[in-house]
Nucleic acid binder design. Structure first.
Lengths: 235, 235
DNA sequence: CGCACCCTTGAAATTACTCAAGTTCAGTGG
DNA sequence: CCACTGAACTTGAGTAATTTCAAGGGTGCG
């Protein structure tokens, strides 16, 4: 398994590109000196498990590039995806409260992330009120995403759910192509079977709401307006 | 509308019965002096809206008795229940981060709650590291409940979902009767129609998993063991 | 008594699931 | 260069579950 690790100096961390919307958004240079070499940038391929539900852990990850799924395993062994993490989101936030992971985190694409020991957070939290505010904001974001998941992706017909998922994956940028996870994962996100997910995608393709840019039907150009109509349709 | 309000003195708050698992679990007497008369105990009937999604607000509520639903309204006007709050839970946590409610909170039963201005929290947070820890714990709890909602109540057949809901409402205390919300709310929680919810309840009753203690079929004695089998069934 | 509200039930239509082939495509090794 | 293979996606046909629409109870309250 190809995996790259790189310890970050205070300098690098301070000048991080996505820091604006990340956890360390407004720390001071003094703060950064404290975390020098404590944080590692890692780069892992798709289908890598960052951590498993129920296991002990002291590490959180801020996603810098790629897509991560949070999953819970059901009694029948199948998995239910409970949240999707995109750049700026944090996996393993729960370890700042209690050193056990509430769900498993698995990469859907190649992912680069920052691996942060929970001690860094707990230490900084007492010294920096700024980090504290950011942390609360992250909790709020996570909860909002979970609520959205219930309201958007667990309600309505398969067509509606898929339309909402596509719109969410496009993050409002209707022009840029959307990368759709494997159908099995689409099903696990929407609470439907793989076949139903496949049929819904095929239907959207026939209707021109979706246009594959790819032989394997992974990347699509989407018709955001038409999809929004499907997502909202009440009939 | 019958509504009772009562301003709490530091004394009363400090000796609150459910404080153990509540926000102010381990404050000092000094801390309590700060919040004297800032917190009101309110008592409201069923079907009362505590706040509405999208509105401005500076108030959070800790539930002391009763049941509260958090709902999001969908484009077709129907509501989706995204979480259930029981005693010890907090409604409106999000106002500590941003003064807008993310969902509507509506009582399902008569409810008594403590109405807390957001300023009380933000002030105490800087002075008391204990409150801070409790607050994080509350965020964690809320997120976990949201995740549970997705994994348990938005996956599987209507029968399975209902079984899981009943077990959750009984809070593991298999002996005590369960109060089931109106069928419409059951449907809104499970992502199914009112009729399907009604049929599933009727089926459980015929099979003896549920025994009405009530003419109107609201309170039930449940067969926790059999329900757990239904909830977990993979066939 | 009758009205309102909710719960229940029925029957037809729709949607989603299951099971079982095919198909496509990327990668592999001859 | 090409057939082979595995994995993922697609499709079909039958079945099961759920929704829809509509009507019929029961209960509490004025």
């Amino acid at each position: 398994m190809h995996l790259k690790i790189h310890a970050l100096g205070a300098q690098e961390c301070e000048s991080c590109g996505i820091r604006a919307n990340a956890l360390f958004a407004d720390l001071t240079s003094d703060d950064f000196r404290l975390i020098d070499r404590m944080i590692h940038e890692i780069s892992v391929p798709a289908h890598t498990t960052l951590f498993d539900e129920g296991t002990q852990g002291q590490t959180l990850f801020t996603i810098r590039r790629g897509l991560v799924k949070l999953v819970r395993y059901q009694t029948d062994g199948t998995q239910r995806i409970i949240r999707l993490l995109t750049p700026g989101d944090i996996a393993g936030l729960e370890t700042t409260v209690q050193p056990v992971y509430d769900s498993s985190a698995i990469t859907l694409t190649e992912v680069t992330a920052c691996r942060i020991p929970r001690t860094v957070i707990t230490q900084l939290e007492s010294t920096s009120p700024r980090l504290h505010a950011q942390l609360l904001r992250k909790w709020h974001e996570a909860l909002r995403q979970a609520d959205d998941f219930i309201a958007d992706l667990a309600s309505g017909s398969a067509r509606q759910r898929l339309a909402r998922l596509l719109l969410r994956l496009s993050k409002g940028e209707g022009c840029r192509p959307v990368l759709l996870p494997p159908r099995e994962d689409v099903g696990a996100m929407l609470g439907i079977t793989t076949e139903t997910a496949s049929r819904a995608v095929a239907a959207f393709r026939r209707e021109g709401l979706l246009d594959p840019l790819d032989r394997q039907s992974r990347r699509f150009r989407i018709d955001a307006v038409a999809l929004a109509a499907v997502a909202a349709r009440s009939d």
